[in-house]
């Protein structure tokens, strides 16, 4: 018991850090679902490309010697910009090339298209990095190395705090954008009723493209933060993280922006803190390897009682 209390604060911090990354990626799934009723399974690769763009930017700054002279937060912002722009643009391109031509096709068709885009992006990145760097694993330079030791049991690495801080700022900015700005309102209007929105002289195609840009950009920012937090990236990092983030989106209520944030944080905490508690409660019978099982059991329980997710609307078929 004492040991558990000892781990708990550290474990919560780890869960939060992971949860914020999940939440940011989940936002992309949920925004695009909200507007298109389409699960953009290529989003995990948009995240991955963002991680590569951000890391390449940091490596570029490093190779030119700027990294040592500029303050770390500035370097992070430059890298985030690269990740956001690259992923946002990629999101728009994916929509234009892989989804728009089949927008009125049966639902399974864009799904297949998304899988194709995923494979294409994984191998494209592998090919490009392979030719360019002769290795498709990239190691991001460390930006924030200091560790704040609060108690011997609770060590707060600065980079975790940066991830949490940056994610909070980005999500806050997204929230203001969506609720206050003209285009944010247009996105929500299109999500609710495309035809009526077009009567308000809203160009539905532009709004969809914008949604893909914003959703993709959040994914790219998450990718860059992910790279600074975990250092190692490869073209396949999107797969597991994408599944987790999608789960978070469903958990929170797909289509709901606050839902994605709540779902991401909850999943992150369940995976790290929940499983540690469960391990102690069962005297080690349930080990860490069951953390995904725990997360999905809780997902299923929540969906049984609240099929729309925690903050989602009750599922209603549109007539």
């Amino acid at each position: 018991m004492e040991q558990l209390l000892h781990i708990l604060p550290q474990s919560l911090l780890d869960g939060l850090t992971l949860g914020f990354v999940y939440a940011m990626v989940a936002l992309g799934y949920t925004m695009i679902y909200g507007v298109m009723e389409l699960i953009n399974f290529a989003h995990s690769e948009v995240f991955m490309v963002g991680a590569f763009a951000g890391t390449e930017m940091l490596l570029f700054l490093q190779s030119r010697g700027y990294l040592g002279t500029m303050p770390a937060p500035v370097a992070l912002i430059v890298a985030l910009m690269a990740g956001i722009l690259m992923s946002g643009t990629l999101g728009v391109l994916i929509e234009r090339i892989a989804y728009r031509p089949i927008r009125y096709a049966p639902r399974l068709v864009p799904f297949i298209s998304a899988i194709g885009v995923s494979f294409f992006l994984q191998d494209a990145v592998r090919l490009i990095e392979g030719l360019w760097k002769n290795a498709f694993y990239l190691t991001a330079p460390s930006l924030f190395t200091s560790v704040i030791t609060i108690t011997p049991g609770l060590r707060v690495p600065a980079k975790s705090l940066i991830v949490i801080l940056a994610a909070l700022i980005m999500m806050l900015a997204l929230n203001i954008f969506v609720t206050r700005s003209k285009w944010g309102k247009a996105i929500r209007a299109v999500a609710q009723d495309k035809e009526t929105a077009s009567l308000m002289s809203i160009n539905v195609n532009s709004v969809i493209a914008l949604t893909f840009f914003v959703g993709g950009g959040m994914g790219g920012a998450a990718g860059t933060l992910f790279a600074t937090q975990y250092s190692l990236i490869d073209p396949y990092i999107g797969f597991i993280l994408g599944i987790k983030a999608f789960t978070a989106a469903v958990l929170g209520g797909i289509g709901s922006i606050p839902g994605a944030m709540v779902g991401g944080l909850l999943l992150g905490i369940l995976e790290s803190t929940g499983i540690v508690i469960l391990g102690f409660a069962t005297h080690g019978a349930i080990g860490i390897e069951y953390k995904d099982v725990l997360a999905f059991v809780i997902l299923i329980i929540i969906l049984i009682f609240k099929p729309g997710g925690i903050l989602g609307e009750e599922v209603r078929e549109k007539v």
Partner: peptide
């Protein structure tokens, strides 16, 4: 406000 979309220039 959504109805005013085209009259906002931001």
């Amino acid at each position: 406000l959504v109805g005013m979309h085209r009259h906002l220039s931001a």
